[in-house]
Design a binder for these strands. Structure first.
Lengths: 336, 336
DNA sequence: CTGTTAGCGCGTTCAA
DNA sequence: TTGAACGCGCTAACAG
């Protein structure tokens, strides 16, 4: 271990001078500076980050809780988080929770032990354990995409899911559809409620009824899309248009619809959600809702950074705009 | 800040006793233990991780350098890394390098400043800067998928890319193909050389010539697949079978082939590489090479962990087996 | 401008 | 079994 003491001896100065030279070179005379820098180089010295941090009491790290690493939508958010964190001098600790409460607890407790200064939650659950809950109240925490259930006081960055649901519905009604199915992801989240409410609001306005049997699914997986389509096609009156609550579900759904010998969109229209990289290259290219995932990640870090430095927040809840991407998985019925 | 001193006062004992109670409860009498635990609970005390680490000199963190977060193959590896790291008591610092040298330098230097104990590199470049290179020689570092160019001494975990290249070629020749194209990813990596060498070795054995004009591409992106197909189809004698060096490239390739009004596999066969989640749901489902990405990540952590604790390594280079996944993007020419 | 001293929060001696 | 004292590596305060 080559430490500051060794360097100071090598240079014939005090440890304080070495520290100063490295941190604030203007405070030392050019001669000593040179002497010190030479000793630093010769010894191959790097300041011990742990020691520096224990002084300041800040770890300059943030922990990101993500339910699933393989979802490209989440990863795009994390790209934004990572980039902004780097710019602000933070490191990112990755917490793959797999949606499991114990793992959330474990990662969340990092903020309680000075291992991280703040926390970004990509899921909707309150990540702290029962035990830690009281300590967590003053912790810098932000959620992205989702809101933390039961804790409306934490800032969040999310999409206008209600409006997106409405836009998708208008789009499909514009093609003349009247019978709709929904293949949902996590059923307990705010996202789910908002999107569904958006869809239903338009249907009500248009005098179209929605049968609760037409709501299937329950996780953001390809297989959910497959099973969802199987259930919807088994109905007496199958839908002619299906809302999928992410692009993975839509991929599975389209795959299964084709496997039944039906065509997309001539027999059934399908919409996705998220606009992941691959959605433009599906067959047919997917009509979906683009979320500004990268920017959402960036924004989360900006908010969290302010919380960490105890600056006041101008806004504690941000609803970002979406954009509807019309491709070829939707269309009028029967057109060839 | 609630520290150990405050707790010791609250419990009426010394700080040493508090430390002992938490770290080695058997060394204190049950009565004091109870006293201390009560004070800990009452004060909401958590040991400061930074202080603990500065004592031990270990950060119990590893930094993972990944060129690209949105590639599901990398993410699957990181899932394995993350899981194994958690089991071994390490935290994962995420370093999204975007393939940029400066960012690699910055993240790699974390190991030099005690911010991390070891490093996993998912790319093929030596991540340290010129300046840090001499210090890096004794650093625990492992590479996954790739080998670190110019530094054969670092352990690596990779696939048997040569054999995989051979297997794919045999598969396609079995369908009667004679004219092959290759859409490659990173052209400078060991991976590239091994796969290409595997392909060419079989072609040579079978007396089939390979025209260097049939080698296109240069990055692992969907767009590379599109452009690659355009170049290949512009040849006088376009190939009847195309090797794509990852599944993203294959996705773009298939998309573009179809856009030209050609059919996969009746007009052109396409193979991928990696077997990402979505490859089974492409249209047609992709013939590809499965890499045990999750296990590769796990294994990397096991090796790195041994290096960090200075245990001797049994093997320093591991070549893992692949498996060829035959789906429907390959087949004989012209069959309907 | 530089050196001495104190202390960040904790773990680990060494006596008692 | 417990406490006092020291030190991890570093930086900030105060002298000089």
């Amino acid at each position: 271990m080559t430490n500051i003491k060794k360097v100071s001896q090598l240079a014939g100065v005090s440890t304080a001078t070495v520290s100063r030279t490295l941190k604030n070179p203007d405070l030392v005379t050019p001669q000593t500076r040179e002497k010190v820098m030479k000793a630093v180089k010769q010894a191959g010295y790097r300041p011990n980050w742990l020691a520096t941090s224990v002084k300041t009491g800040k770890s300059n790290s943030i922990v990101v809780l993500v339910p699933n690493l393989v979802n490209p939508f989440f990863m795009r958010i994390i790209e934004g988080i990572e980039q902004a964190a780097q710019e602000q001098g933070f490191s990112v600790l990755l917490g793959d929770t797999q949606g499991k409460a114990e793992r959330e607890h474990e990662y969340a407790s990092m903020v309680l032990t000075n291992r991280a200064d703040g926390l970004i939650q990509l899921d909707h659950s309150f990540p702290f354990s029962e035990n830690d809950a009281d300590l967590a109240s003053s912790i810098p925490m932000v959620s992205v995409c989702e809101r933390i259930s039961g804790h409306p006081d934490y800032p969040f960055i999310e999409l206008d899911n209600y409006a997106a649901g409405r836009a998708l519905t208008h789009h499909l009604i514009g093609y003349g559809h009247q019978r709709f199915g929904v293949i949902a992801g996590q059923l307990t989240s705010q996202i789910h409620h908002d999107r569904l409410a958006g869809i239903k609001s338009v249907l009500t306005e248009e005098g179209i009824s929605f049968d609760e049997d037409m709501l299937v699914g329950g996780s953001y997986r390809i297989e959910t899309g497959i099973e969802g389509v199987q259930q919807l096609l088994a109905q007496k009156q199958p839908p002619t248009a299906v809302f999928c609550f992410n692009d993975d579900i839509a991929l599975g759904a389209i795959h299964e619809i084709k496997r039944h010998g039906l065509r997309v969109p001539q027999d059934i229209s399908v919409t996705g959600f998220d606009n992941v990289r691959t959605s433009a290259y599906m067959d047919p290219p997917l009509t979906t809702v683009d979320q500004p995932a990268y920017d959402m990640g960036r924004r989360a870090v900006e908010v969290l950074s302010k919380m960490i430095s105890r600056e006041p927040l101008t806004r504690t809840r941000e609803i970002l705009p979406f954009s509807l991407i019309e491709r070829h998985s939707t269309g009028p019925l029967g057109k060839d």
